[in-house]
Amino acid sequence: MVGIEDEAIVLRAVDFGESDLIAHLLVPEIGRLTVIAKHARKSRKRFPGSLDIFNHIRVRVSRKRPGALGFLEQALLLDPFLPLREVPARFALASYLVELMDRMAPEGGPGPDMRRLFDFVHSALVSLGQGQPDLCMRLFLELRAFDALGLRPGLERCVRCGSELAPGPVGFHVADGGGICDAHGAEGLSGVLRVHLGTLRALDASLGSPMDQLPRLRLEGQALAEAREILFRFHRFHLGFELKSEGFLEESLGGLA
């Protein structure tokens, strides 16, 4: 029997059988972990208020072997991130990030990488609870989510030859994973998106900025439109489908998401 005692964030919880819940958790050092919470819907004492979406909890889980379904033995609520519930745009963007993690976070990856992923989600939920998210915030957080998932696009140098990208219009090739210089972009590659170097630099700068500074970073006009297209194409390439929460996110961010 393998025991896990750690903090976790609830990505999803669904009813199972007569009184149980299946919960998807994001756990440092492990990544995504699926557990069954026996009698969670009947007992007021076992998991009081702890298995709601976004909740930051401390858990004790037992598993017969790594990779097997875990049995949730105890869950203690640390932070329900209540401010996320109070503003529809916060709720929408937090739901989008959590759904992205639920779909893409690996289970059982290298510990430090999984810890980084957990830290990203935790800090993103804290940050989202402090302001009024807009389209810029959505793009910056989505880029960070891909970065935390190990899918950081190349934004500084040509991903084909490694040369520094020259000022002016450059290419962005989703399948190659980043910007490409004019020499390679002119090769007749299909799917190359023409964008300005300034847009890639702004996105790159956002990745290096502390999380609490993100609301101050701005993308305007053409840069915003280009960044939106880059992230949209990157998302669809790696995920392959639209997340269920995208519709409500779009409505909540004023039809611009």
């Binding site: 709720f91 759904e99 929460s245 409500f248």
Partner: peptide, 10 residues
């Protein structure tokens, strides 16, 4: 109730 991850919007 609203549940974006289940595709339930207003």
């Amino acid at each position: 109730a609203l549940s974006p991850i289940d595709g339930i919007g207003p």
